[in-house]
Simulated scan of single mutants.
Amino acid sequence: MTRALKTDNSQTLIRDKALWMRQHAMRMVYDKQLGHLGGDFSAIDVLATLYFGVLRYDPARPEWTERDRFVMSKGHATGALYTALAAAGYFPQDWLDTYMQHHSMLNGHPNRQYLPGVETNTGPLGHGFPVALGIAISGQIAGADYRTYVLTGDGEQQEGSNWEAAMTAGSRKVRNLTLIIDRNRLQQGARTEDTNGLDPLDDKYRAFGWHVVEIDGHEYGQLLDTLGAPVGDRQKPLCVIANTVKGKGVSFMEDQAKWHHGVPNAEQFAQAMKELV
């Protein structure tokens, strides 16, 4: 399978997939009264762009050696990841109905022993980025042309393990690695800057030897152009700061810290589904 190519219809396809993902993530969390919708919805446009406009993969061969690798470091955002994998054909879409049930393969955090398409188990924050770095270094050493992408939350950037990975990636010039930061500026209970300030996040990554691009994380053209750009002669790892809105797409959820792990009641669910059209 070849790497996805951008066409005039790419943004329409990605927009349709992202809407489908939001609808199904909302239903999954409502039905089970468990989940992290706010972070799901801030990240869904990034994942839809990756899986339907950027990544090289074959769902029939999840371990295909030439696949691009994607690591969901913010592992609590399974509503976004599972709907992306289902839409991409890694497993039947009706598996989404089993979300967080006893003995389900769709746990609250992704497990690569259970689900095809999951590169590594994540959940404890700050672990996915270092693992993705190791995957990228392995490809660099082997001379492989696969690309490695990792998505972290911005609150997750407060974990020291991320900065060890950032320093190592910059020092080694791991040019096949792309870090995407879901910069919705909210974490559990508060704003990131009121908890443990991150800004100037762009300058910090530049100081560690990264190429940094800041974009609108809900604008498909910017996402495609930035994430889909060929590695080419790039000599640095790429940090993409994707400015997003927590709860994007549902009016009463947007930019509200309580929706980090809030779950909708019947009235809220009905309103959300009316808006997600």
Rank of each mutant, 00 (worst) to 15 (best):
R56Y: 10
L50K: 07
M167R: 12
K173V: 00
R191F: 01
G197Q: 00
T98I: 05
W20P: 03
Y220V: 15
R234K: 14
P59G: 01
R206M: 01
L81K: 08
V71N: 12
G170M: 05
G221P: 06
G160H: 04
L85S: 03
R56D: 12
Q33E: 15
V245M: 05
G247E: 14
C239W: 01
L125E: 13
N265F: 10
G197M: 02
V277C: 05
M26L: 11
I137V: 15
G134F: 00
L5G: 05
H218Y: 11
Y90R: 10
V245P: 03
M273R: 15
P200M: 02
A4S: 09
M26W: 04
P116C: 09
W259Q: 00
L85R: 10
Q93T: 14
L238R: 03
T78Y: 06
L224H: 04
L133P: 08
M21V: 09
T7Y: 02
I135L: 15
V231K: 09
N111A: 11
I180W: 01
K274D: 01
K74Y: 06
Y205M: 07
L179G: 10
R172C: 00
E254T: 10
Y149H: 08
A165R: 05
S171T: 08
H218L: 07
Q101N: 06
A169G: 14
P237F: 01
S251H: 09
G79M: 09
E66M: 08
D216A: 07
A242G: 07
H36P: 04
W20K: 01
R69L: 12
V250N: 01
L186T: 05
A266C: 02
Q113A: 14
N111E: 15
T226R: 04
D145E: 09
R172S: 03
Q158W: 05
N111Q: 10
D31H: 12
P62G: 02
I44L: 12
V250H: 04
V29T: 11
I241D: 09
Q140L: 11
L96R: 12
E267T: 06
A86M: 11
T148N: 13
D203H: 07
I215S: 01
R27K: 15
A144L: 02
G232Q: 10
K258T: 13
F41A: 01
V29G: 06
E267A: 14
N162C: 14
A84L: 02
R69C: 13
V213R: 00
Y82G: 04
R112T: 03
I14D: 02
R56I: 09
R69A: 14
M21K: 00
G134I: 02
R172L: 15
L223P: 00
K32H: 04
L50Q: 12
E156Q: 06
A190Y: 00
H109A: 10
A136S: 14
D40L: 07
P92N: 07
L5A: 15
H102V: 12
D255N: 15
G75H: 04
M167L: 13
L276E: 08
G139C: 12
R27P: 01
H109T: 06
H24Y: 00
V174E: 00
D94S: 13
F91N: 12
H102Q: 06
V29E: 14
H36A: 12
L115Y: 08
D94A: 12
V263R: 05
E66D: 14
